[in-house]
Design a protein around this nucleic acid. Structure first.
Lengths: 257, 257
DNA sequence: CTTTGTGAACAGTTTCACAGCC
DNA sequence: GGCTGTGAAACTGTTCACAAAG
């Protein structure tokens, strides 16, 4: 990295904290469910429970968006849905390309929550010529050769990489060169991208390893902390209490640039 | 929540920070790659680059594990691989069940990084009787009725939920009742679990929404910040620079209990 | 010299607790 | 009375910068 204070040149204006941004979709989902049940208002307490956070955090989060609640009453569901959608940029339509149509790519293409909230699958792309033309989730798969054209024609700025790890960086480079500035990466690789391109990473194996860490903790809380491994017979004893209460894990998910 | 200081009653012994735990798998992957190329040692600088973090962070992270480096030289790759694996609990074998064998479940079952690092797919489970017996990734799918038996017989403590949202809580309850204490949830729902059960959540639509937020930022950095919505025509103009450098996003991924 | 390991400064996040408004 | 909105406190995580070690 460069010499000194090169980082984040103070884009500090009306910044919503990242931690808050990461929770807004959670609130939005809970609110959408309430909206569908025609619930007119919610208290921070109720909504927080539905979203799986605590109410103080939720109120603090909302305070960054503005004062959208009514004291003594709560929040108007419809109004909040709209405000959060707006804040997240979901009032506009985001065309998305998915590259790599294996099982995972197909799963993503079929994913319902996709089409609903502002996202539209603009194209499915795969390197296998045999896939070309085959419809997945009702959309015909196109060959990688078309990638640049699709992105430019459709004004795609979000790309999803669901290729094998070996192909990911190359695909990423092509996406970025063609104009994509946000990438959701499912391949287990670190992607190198230029400044200004956001990458989020979803990695099954990392999640499992984090779980394994905690699982091991539980098992060895005071059992023999012996050294050598090779002891498969777990026999999963239930642990009735385990003090572990507040650890909101987190993940180094966004790699900036 | 109870009255006052009920939280985390000081499980503060030799705790590795959560943020560090979340990065260990990243380091491990980079180290494994080096190991395969028979590289004997790495500096924090090189390894950090490979893992996509900065070197100060990496050194700090490693300092929680112990002093495994050599000043002036770097870290011994094999040794570090071992130490991190141990810390993460990957020197033992973790049987995992995957519930819900749709596209996503199949993708997970086929996922290579799965079988490699300590995890073993003990069973694939689906509610559709038509699936029963059909092999996916070489493993025959079993019916949900078998769930409890499998978990108990195999001593499974980690479960992966890849069902539709509507089924997730129910599956979760059964997993927990049968002895599972760590859950990786791909269904877009908040799961309620008792104390002592860890849940990590992977949610495509949340990740996309976070990207959309940042994408919107880039587009509207100083364009007309008009008020009223309803303006779908995007036409994604390319933004050549955009100062956004350091946003390490994060995610409220672990819900404790 | 080179590179680790780490205290100390800083930054970001969560929780508390209560004033202010309905 | 009930519930939001928010400063202030507490905590967690990151970065700096340098002493210590090879």
């Amino acid at each position: 990295m460069a010499t000194g204070r090169t980082h984040r040149p103070a884009t500090r204006s009306r910044g919503i904290p990242e931690a808050t941004v990461a929770r807004l979709p959670l609130y939005l989902r809970a609110l959408t469910a309430l909206s569908e049940r025609s619930v007119p208002t919610v208290s921070s307490e109720e909504l927080a429970a539905a979203a799986g956070v605590n109410s103080a955090k939720l109120r603090k989060d909302f305070s960054y968006l503005g004062s959208y609640g009514t004291r003594g009453v709560g929040y108007d569901v419809e109004y909040l849905v709209y405000q959060i959608s707006r804040e997240l940029g979901l009032t506009q339509d985001w065309p998305v390309v998915i590259v790599g149509i294996g099982n995972l790519g197909a799963a993503l293409a079929n994913y319902g929550g996709f089409a609903s909230r502002g996202f539209r699958v603009a194209a499915l792309i795969d390197a296998d010529p045999g896939m070309a033309g085959k419809p997945v989730a009702g959309i015909p798969v196109q060959h990688t050769d078309e990638l640049e054209k699709i992105i430019q024609d459709d004004g795609v700025s979000i790309g999803v990489i669901a290729t094998p790890a070996g192909a990911a960086q190359q695909v990423c480079d092509r996406l970025v060169a063609a104009g994509v500035t946000s990438i959701l990466n499912f391949a287990p690789t670190v992607l190198n991208v230029p400044e200004g391109v956001d990458v989020r990473k979803v990695d099954l194996s990392i999640e499992l390893q984090i779980l394994a860490f905690h699982e091991q903790r539980k098992a060895g809380e005071e059992a023999g902390a012996g050294a050598d491994g090779a002891v498969p017979p777990v026999a999963a004893r239930k642990q009735p209490h385990s003090t572990d209460q507040g650890p909101d894990g987190d993940v180094p998910a966004v790699m900036p640039a």
